[in-house]
Amino acid sequence: MRGLPPRIVYIAGYGHSGSTLLNIILGQHPDAMGAGELFRLAGPAWRSGELCSCGEPLQSCPVWREIVRRWEGEAGSGAMAAYRELQAICESRRPWQPRRADRDAYGRLSLGLFAAIREVTGKPVIVDSSKLPARAAALARVPGLDLRVLHLVRDGRGVAWSLRRRMAKDLQAGLQAAKRQRSALRTGLMWMLANLATERTARGLAPGRAMRLRYETLVAEPVESLTRVGELAGLDMRGLAASLAAGGSLAPGHVMAGNRLRMAGTLSLRADSEWQRLLPAGQRRLIEGLCLPVMRRYGYPPLAGAS
């Protein structure tokens, strides 16, 4: 694999849209490493000893410990700190462009990280579910990287319902910090901005290097959905898709960062649509008022007959 550019399937969009689930699904393929939210590796995940989905802190996990050892062995012992600083520059939403030297250094360290993951795991495809559109845009500018962007969207009303839940910090369950309730107004605005930014990045890629997938379609039609994702990633997903459609379970593997699904041990594919019953009507109307043109484009019309 050394002669080939690292192939990255980058799951982009807004949070609480099923990115951890999709990362775990793709990581079941023997040629894919479901890595998780890689943007966090050089920051809080490694420094604070967040848990890998195998149950070990990242610094003790045999896979991630070896990945970081190889990465720093090639790039130098300060690679982690340097990458963290360069991410703040190159993955930001600032209106100005980073300096050429910063872009080049960011590209070298990104390539080094992906190469270390590929060498340690022996898997040619790496799934990064960082979601951040700005990171997708930064990686798209790295020469020598085979980037495929998978724009994952979920109905903004479902996202708003998910973000209404408060959760206490629970490291063993994969919650690195307490989850506070988010307002429907903030969720609607951020949902729209993140998805529009992802669209813009996807349009800048070569044909066949980006696709959009709805969370709702993934859980309702896994075979068709994963066949399309496989075409994007260059993976034959038909056998895995058939297994999931038949009720097969998922093993999270070595996913770093992401939601609590990754700590579940095993999980299965199922829809989460309780927002249709439980989201307050006022918040639903607020989301629809803010986001309806984008929602319609993604196939999310107002609820029929809803008051």
Rank of each mutant, 00 (worst) to 15 (best):
residue 24 I to N: 00
residue 5 P to Y: 04
residue 170 D to K: 12
residue 294 V to T: 15
residue 283 Q to W: 10
residue 191 W to G: 04
residue 217 T to A: 10
residue 138 A to L: 07
residue 184 A to Q: 07
residue 114 F to Q: 02
residue 197 A to D: 15
residue 68 V to S: 05
residue 31 D to C: 05
residue 188 G to R: 08
residue 184 A to L: 07
residue 276 Q to H: 08
residue 54 C to G: 11
residue 243 S to W: 00
residue 96 W to Q: 08
residue 7 R to L: 02
residue 119 E to G: 10
residue 31 D to R: 13
residue 142 V to C: 08
residue 142 V to W: 07
residue 65 R to A: 13
residue 198 T to I: 11
residue 221 E to L: 06
residue 142 V to T: 12
residue 203 R to F: 03
residue 164 R to I: 04
residue 56 E to V: 06
residue 7 R to K: 14
residue 147 L to Y: 07
residue 300 Y to K: 03
residue 116 A to T: 08
residue 78 G to Y: 04
residue 36 G to L: 09
residue 113 L to P: 13
residue 104 D to F: 03
residue 258 G to N: 05
residue 284 R to Y: 03
residue 180 R to G: 14
residue 58 L to F: 04
residue 297 R to T: 11
residue 6 P to W: 02
residue 230 G to P: 03
residue 186 R to Y: 14
residue 118 R to Q: 12
residue 191 W to Q: 07
residue 159 V to W: 05
residue 232 L to D: 08
residue 87 Q to C: 12
residue 300 Y to R: 07
residue 149 V to L: 15
residue 102 D to R: 02
residue 182 R to M: 15
residue 209 R to K: 10
residue 150 L to M: 04
residue 277 R to E: 12
residue 157 R to I: 11
residue 215 Y to C: 01
residue 110 S to V: 12
residue 207 P to M: 04
residue 104 D to V: 12
residue 227 T to I: 01
residue 276 Q to N: 05
residue 229 V to A: 07
residue 203 R to D: 07
residue 212 R to P: 06
residue 125 V to G: 10
residue 118 R to D: 02
residue 264 A to S: 13
residue 206 A to I: 08
residue 154 R to W: 14
residue 72 E to V: 03
residue 224 E to H: 08
residue 76 G to I: 05
residue 173 A to K: 13
residue 243 S to Y: 00
residue 192 M to F: 14
residue 170 D to N: 14
residue 32 A to R: 11
residue 36 G to A: 01
residue 272 D to K: 13
residue 181 Q to R: 15
residue 303 L to H: 03
residue 137 A to F: 04
residue 63 V to S: 00
residue 218 L to E: 03
residue 250 L to P: 00
residue 256 M to C: 11
residue 54 C to S: 14
residue 2 R to K: 11
residue 131 K to I: 13
residue 68 V to C: 06
residue 211 M to V: 02
residue 235 L to G: 10
residue 14 Y to D: 09
residue 76 G to Y: 12
